[in-house]
């Protein structure tokens, strides 16, 4: 119990201590606010530019969630297709890998030329989707392959058809793998969205990346920090929610390992 309390209290205490030190050191060493603004100045940005920042955050969050949902659905569906047909897997999996290993920032200009000139938001969505798609596909594929061979034999022995085997055996067996992939995909969707917004840039989108570029050009460092803070909060919230979903679905079956 003491350990668990410390696990929560210590990071918070450390955070508050660092903020105090930051505030104090900016004043003490007379650091210029366009190099490092004090935390109080960053907080003050929310009072002046809060509406535009939150609006941008809303845009980025929307793109992220849409890309995440698309990645989860398409990654799972493709993994299921791979599991049902080895020929499809052999034919398509190299392309999935190529898409994964090619840096997203290098694909971005192409996608933006193709779809982004009329509709920047769509280009950003596609890029974020590509970024988040692969971990879902990879983990779901690995999960579907990790089915206990004896259980598979048992299903064959009782003449289960593919649908029964898929729903009753393959989906539940692969769930822990899939959820780990989905958790990674949540974070990557945000990364992909922001990277794509940077690439699209120049006023075409109004996501948080654009606010950061804009503030950077005007040396409004406090505003950059405020935008970064929002991004970090979004990432943490996404991760926390997905971890909670994972816990909800798996804790009864896997148990709390710490308690054995």
């Amino acid at each position: 119990m003491l350990m668990r309390g410390l696990r929560i209290i210590l990071p918070i205490a450390l955070f508050l201590g660092l903020i105090r030190f930051w505030e104090w050191s900016v004043v003490y060493w007379e650091i210029k606010s366009f190099i490092l603004p004090p935390p109080s100045a960053i907080l003050a940005v929310f009072a002046t530019d809060g509406a535009s920042l939150l609006g941008s955050a809303w845009t980025t969050l929307g793109t992220t969630l849409a890309a995440f949902a698309l990645a989860t659905l398409s990654g799972t569906a493709l993994a299921a297709l791979f599991a049902s047909s080895r020929i499809t897997e052999a034919a398509l999996s190299p392309y999935a890998v190529i898409l994964q290993v090619t840096p997203i920032i290098a694909i971005a200009p192409l996608i933006i030329v193709w779809v982004g000139l009329d509709n920047a938001w769509l280009a950003v969505l596609i890029l974020a989707w590509i970024t988040a798609f692969f971990p879902v596909l990879a983990s779901a594929t690995a999960g579907l392959k990790a089915v206990d061979p004896n259980l598979r034999d048992l299903f064959r022995l009782y003449r289960a058809d593919f649908r029964q085997t898929f729903i009753r055996l393959m989906v539940p067996s692969s769930l822990p793998y899939l959820l780990a992939g989905i958790k990674t995909a949540g974070g990557l969707a945000l990364v992909g969205a922001v990277v794509a917004e940077f690439a699209a840039a120049s006023g075409n989108t109004d996501g948080l990346a654009w606010r950061i570029l804009e503030a950077g050009n005007r040396l409004q460092i406090a505003k950059m920090f405020a935008a970064l803070l929002l991004l970090a909060l979004m990432g943490v919230a996404l991760y926390a929610i997905l971890s909670f979903v994972e816990w909800l679905l798996l804790h009864r079956w896997h148990g709390d390992r710490r308690r054995g």
Binding site: D148, N150, L151, D153, L154, F155, Y158, R159, A160, Q164, R168, L169, P172, L175, W253
Partner: peptide
């Protein structure tokens, strides 16, 4: 089988009911 080979995600009764449900 050599191992119990049960579906870890579901109860004893549902494991036993599997052949009938299939």
């Amino acid at each position: 089988f050599q191992e119990p080979t049960l579906m870890a995600w579901t109860s004893a009764a549902k494991n036993v009911a599997l052949p009938l449900e299939l």
